[in-house]
């Protein structure tokens, strides 16, 4: 439907290329997030989860499988660059938030909009990370919970808004 992407590629190739693109985007976003100064009030290692934007989009537009794949690769990438703990944090956050968003999308009549999905994704992302931190360190990290919820709501809203802006652009590339 769009001239710019009307290349003579098989749907399979296009799907692979597109998923690769999304993965790259997720990695770039988590890299950007790394450059942000560490936020006070957040447990060590916890991130805002900007790359949720990508997994969220992938969940809705491509499907659960590729979305989980992106989360997995993102986790491995974190493991390679920042160590085992970071990998566990990233994997737990990424996989759980993807699953939660996928489930919410499948609910009949989809009660939530993009913002709601983003918030739900961010919250489950933070919850999973906190749980991992709880297991790895001390129960004291649970005191971060209220702050994580606040940051989760905020970053969820940002995710939803960004996706709203990016959706038309990304849709140009989707396989129809």
């Amino acid at each position: 439907m769009n001239h710019t992407t009307n290349l003579n590629l098989s749907p399979r190739t296009r799907s692979i290329a597109f998923n690769g693109l999304l993965t790259a985007l997720a990695l770039v976003l988590s890299a950007i997030e790394l450059t942000l100064p560490p936020l006070p009030l957040l447990p060590p290692g916890a991130k805002l989860g900007l790359s949720n934007i990508v997994t969220m989009y992938a969940t809705g537009a491509v499907g659960l499988g590729p979305a989980l794949c992106i989360a997995l690769i993102k986790g491995l990438f974190a493991g390679v660059t920042r160590g085992f703990t970071a990998m566990l944090m990233s994997l737990s956050g990424g996989l759980l938030s993807t699953l939660v968003m996928w489930l919410l999308l499948r609910v009949n009549g989809s009660p939530f909009g993009l913002i709601g999905l983003g918030v739900a994704g961010a919250l489950s992302h933070n919850a999973a990370q906190l749980f991992v931190a709880f297991l790895l360190t001390t129960p004291a990290v649970l005191y971060y919970l209220p702050w994580l919820i606040l940051f989760g709501v905020l970053s969820g809203i940002v995710t939803g808004l960004v996706l709203r802006v990016m959706m038309p652009l990304l849709n140009k590339f989707t396989i129809d």
Binding site: P40, L41, I115, L150, F151, V153, L154, I157
Partner: peptide, 21 residues
Amino acid sequence: LLFAVLIVVIAVLACILIKSN
């Protein structure tokens, strides 16, 4: 409405950050 909520949240977070700093 959403915009208003967002601003309030950011304002609260900014206050907390400033206070904790």
